[in-house]
C-alpha cells in the first residue's frame, strides 16, 4: 500500500513503511515570543540582548518547497539536508531529500541536468555527505525538472545492502511527479 504526498506541484508515491514531509520551512519569527522575550538559542542561551523586531533571521531569504522521505521515523527537528534525521537513521536507513531552489537558478550550469536522476550504487560515496557519519553513503545531484531547479540528496545508512537500498531510492524517485510552475 502506498501513500501519496502532494503539494506545491510535487506529488510522491511513498512505498509502504516510508514516511515523508513536504512543505516550506516557516520563518523562525513565527516561533519567537516577543512578548516574553524568550531568548533565542545560542551556545547556552547567553544572550544579553534580544534582537530587534523584524530581524529574527528572516532577512529576505526565500524558502522553497522541501521534501524529506525516509524509511525510518523522521525526527521533528531536521536540517534541510537531513541533519538530525541522519543522526538517528540505522544502518538500513534511507533518506531522500528533494530541495527546490528559486526560479532564478533554472537554466544555470549547476542545474543543467534534466529530470530526476536514477542513482546507481556505484555513485554513492562516504564523502558525499553534508556531514560525514561513519558507515553512511551519500549521493547529490542538481537537476531541473519541469523547469524547476532541485537538488536530490540521498543518504544510505551503510554499505551493506547498498544495491537494494539504492533501488528503493530509485523507486521513490520514479514515483515522484513534478509539475511546472
Amino acid at each position: 500500500m502506498t501513500t501519496t504526498l502532494d503539494g506545491h506541484g510535487i506529488s510522491i508515491d511513498l512505498p509502504a513503511a516510508w514516511e515523508g514531509r513536504l512543505g516550506v520551512r516557516r520563518s523562525p519569527a513565527d516561533t519567537f515570543d516577543r512578548e516574553t522575550g524568550v531568548r533565542p538559542r545560542s551556545l547556552a542561551g547567553a544572550l544579553d540582548r534580544v534582537a530587534p523586531a523584524g530581524n529574527q533571521g528572516w532577512s529576505g531569504e526565500r524558502a522553497q518547497p522541501l521534501v524529506h522521505l525516509a524509511n525510518f521515523p523522521l525526527p521533528v527537528d531536521r536540517g534541510d539536508f537531513g541533519s538530525g534525521a541522519v543522526d538517528v537513521m540505522g544502518s538500513g536507513g534511507i533518506l531522500v531529500a528533494l530541495i527546490e531552489y528559486g526560479a532564478e537558478s533554472a537554466g544555470t550550469a549547476l542545474f543543467a541536468e534534466q529530470g530526476l536522476p536514477q542513482p546507481l550504487p556505484g555513485q554513492f560515496d562516504p564523502n558525499t555527505l553534508q556531514r560525514r557519519i561513519s558507515g553512511q553513503y551519500g549521493y547529490q545531484r542538481f537537476v531541473t525538472v519541469a523547469g524547476r531547479p532541485f537538488c536530490v540528496y540521498i543518504v544510505i545508512g551503510s554499505a551493506a545492502g547498498l544495491g537494494p537500498r539504492t533501488a528503493q531510492a530509485r523507486e521513490v524517485l520514479a514515483g515522484t511527479r513534478i509539475e511546472s510552475r
Partner: peptide, 28 residues
C-alpha cells in the same frame, strides 16, 4: 547581500548553531 553570486533561496540547519572557532567573534 555581500555576494551577488548568491541567491536568497533559504536553507537551514539549526544543528550547527553552536559551531564556532577561536578565530571567530564571540557572542553578539
Amino acid at each position: 547581500i555581500f555576494d551577488d553570486s548568491c541567491t536568497a533561496t533559504s536553507l537551514t540547519d539549526n544543528r550547527t548553531v553552536t559551531h564556532s572557532a577561536p578565530c571567530l567573534p564571540g557572542n553578539c
